[in-house]
Design a binder for these strands. Structure first.
Lengths: 257, 257
DNA sequence: CAGTGGTCTAGACCACTGG
DNA sequence: CAGTGGTCTAGACCACTGC
């Protein structure tokens, strides 16, 4: 079978390409569109390679390459002997998959949360631009603290979060406070919004008086400012997060390849 | 042919494994050991997949998978129609492959260098621990500024670098100042040390009086502290770098998968 | 044991590069 | 045009999981 033949179903899903789109990329785009459509939910198993190959009239190796790339991009998780599953933030080994803050000593990263605020507001200029909304559109604004779990509890992170109001209709302080596990897990199961990737911009700033009070540092103390924009399927931004990190005993870790 | 047969040459290069080492990983380890041995120099082309397959008595697909992983880990660079080449820091499109600092406006990242110091010193406790030396061993210490290229030149980065003296014997201020292109390119071509990966720890700190003077900020102004430990082949640390970044008009960018 | 992903092969053909 | 990496196939067999 030739890569250019048949496959109407695929060509519809195929994304813009340089000049030539190999078959496995068309399969990949097709699978991605099905993930986006919610055909398989986070944590669920997708059909086996052989079954997909048979259904799509393609060899196993071609499906394999498509699934490999999706697994590498954290959309799918392969488990030998069991199957291939839709990735989820709900059962992360690390409590927070996107949080790169680590204690200086290799100790545990157990942190407790303290919800400060959760309300619906107009997005405003900055959040609207990042989230591709109008400034007058509604947004959910959350403010919260992360503190060390060990007593005495020390504030470490002050987060300020904006979410598009249209996507998070029933999100209340009660729901947030009651939820155990990663916040992104709640977003998945309650609102069907799965974070796929994120971009962060990091700066050093001086604490304002309010920030200093909440984080237990002196005003104008240096803090790490981490601005994160998280995306769901289709490069659609769905969360803006402004985190202030105390870094006397923690650091932001990064790996450069 | 079975994955467990023959292949004395490979088993020697095979690294510790969970319980089962597929053939392509043995090939990968073999290629990696040859890269480490300098059999092919940075920028050079390695033998074609078919030739390697023939020499190693293995199918092209197996070599392919090994090379794929090495390319993904930035050891090799594939160029369709031309060949597969040893990765190098000398011909990076971006001037600095490991520098994640970006201007807030999407403008160019052109920076100029100003060498402040380059001398041979005792490593000292901190650098010795990081570089796996004795505190009494000699190290090369470099201090330099990076400034915006556009006039008026603004200081942006203050770097302090430690290198193991034993590996960088002829490294002098003159050599450094005369070198055009990335510093890591000089390390490759003059000292045969290729940086393979790096770890960074990022913090917010207050500028000391000296640091403030060099960077043109007020004392105790917030700065981004980026501590980088770079490794060459075999997980061997070969550079400790302590960078202080001004982040009023620049930010450290990161992608989270 | 059956079902899954993981490895390996052999061979055909395609896309890209440079002489 | 020859030589390179890139794609695709069909089939065999291996390793891991759970019943």
């Amino acid at each position: 079978m030739n890569a250019r033949d048949g496959l109407e179903e695929r060509s519809a899903a195929a994304v813009a390409v340089p000049s030539f789109s190999p078959l496995y990329r068309q399969i990949k785009a097709l699978l991605l569109s099905r993930l986006q459509a919610g055909e398989w939910k986070p944590g669920e198993m997708i059909p086996s390679e052989l079954e997909l190959a048979a259904r799509l009239k393609v060899s196993q190796g071609t499906v394999r390459k498509a699934v490999d790339e999706l697994a590498q991009e954290n959309h799918l998780v392969r488990r030998q002997g069991k199957g291939t599953f839709v990735a989820t933030h709900a059962e992360e080994r690390t409590q927070y998959r996107f949080l790169r803050l680590t204690p200086d000593d290799g100790a545990s990263t157990r942190l407790q949360r303290r919800l400060l605020e959760c309300r619906r507001v107009r997005a405003g200029a900055e959040a609207a631009r990042a989230l591709e909304l109008r400034a007058s559109d509604m947004a959910v604004q959350i403010r919260r603290l992360l503190l060390t779990a060990a007593e005495p509890a020390q504030p470490v992170v002050l987060d300020e979060i904006w979410l598009p109001g249209s996507l998070f209709k029933g999100l209340t302080a009660e729901k947030l406070a009651a939820w155990r596990g990663p916040m992104y897990g709640l977003f998945e199961s309650e609102f069907g919004v799965r974070m796929v990737r994120a971009e962060e911009r990091i700066r050093a700033v001086a604490a304002t008086r309010d920030e200093a009070a909440l984080l237990g540092v002196t005003p104008s103390a240096p803090l790490l400012l981490v601005e994160r924009l998280s995306y769901t399927y289709g490069e659609r931004p769905v969360e803006l997060r402004r985190g202030l990190y105390r870094t006397e005993h923690f650091h932001y870790r990064n790996e450069l390849g």
